[in-house]
Amino acid sequence: MTISTLSDWTGEVGTVTIGATKADGGTRSGTVTIGGERDLAFIGNPPTGNRPLIAYELCDDPSLWPAPVIRFLGDRASDPAEWARFAAGEYRPDLIRLYLTSTRKRGFSAFAAITTTVENILQATGLPLIIEGSNDPELDSEVFRRIGEAGEGERLLIGTAEAGRYRSIAASAMAFGHLVIAQSPIDINLAKQLNILLREIGLPHDRIVIDPYTGALGYGFEYSYSVMERIRTAALKGDDDLAMPMISSAIDSLTVKEVREADPSASDRTSVAWELYAMLPATVAGASIVCVRHPSTIQPLKAAIEALWSPPGGGA
């Protein structure tokens, strides 16, 4: 007898490809594919599916961004295109995730700037992109149409659809050939429900990435960790409505008390620790894309994922 783990899953997580190269009608220098797991990543045998990826998050209005990152980056943060170019070049994330935080200021109406910003980011980096639009129903229609148009052909991953607010995002994905992040508040059944709603308006499952919502370390992270494990095992047990790859971003990591109040000399290190200690667990729980904001988190997170997903002696 050789002792190893027992697994008798019947389901499989679908795959999603983000980005389009010239051959596919886009301008990305490469594409990335996530999902495809037929087992939990760490159960027996070589890992199945695609290894988790790191998205680096930035924004178009740094006044709504965590202070440690802005301190670290200095002037670079004032221009999202320069920011993206710098992060992609120096720190090598797998994707760039742009938050259009400008739309979250009261009285926002600079819709034309959205088109310009998205176009500039597309020029600044060849990495596949994730774009986060507004979170105000009043603005959604115009904002997501602009994002969709500006990125037509690029197979963007667009966020964030929620149960009460998904039509514009789905419309943008369907009209301009993009993908959708579907977020539910740490609840497996609501995640499933949203996926069904999206399917009903015509968005197929292979264009959805689940965001189960991630609380920061020490601030509800455990709920997110477990709901990701549950979503993933449900998919492996054959629940097709949950068999999409997941994205996890503990967006409050760098604004929690521990990081905010860290000694200035330890600010960067604390930022990295708070991101690493949430995002590596997220990959273990089943997330396919994990997101960070401090550039210095990328390298240690990448090394850890590399080590975790590499069986000794090569393999898959």
């Binding site: 370390l217 020490g218 455990e222 960790y225 330890a266 290190r269 620790a273 708070w274 690493l276």
Partner: peptide, 18 residues
Amino acid sequence: LSEASRKALLVLRQNIYT
């Protein structure tokens, strides 16, 4: 460990064992 790492470690442990 660095202070940053051990704080994060202790909090992660607390989270997971809640």
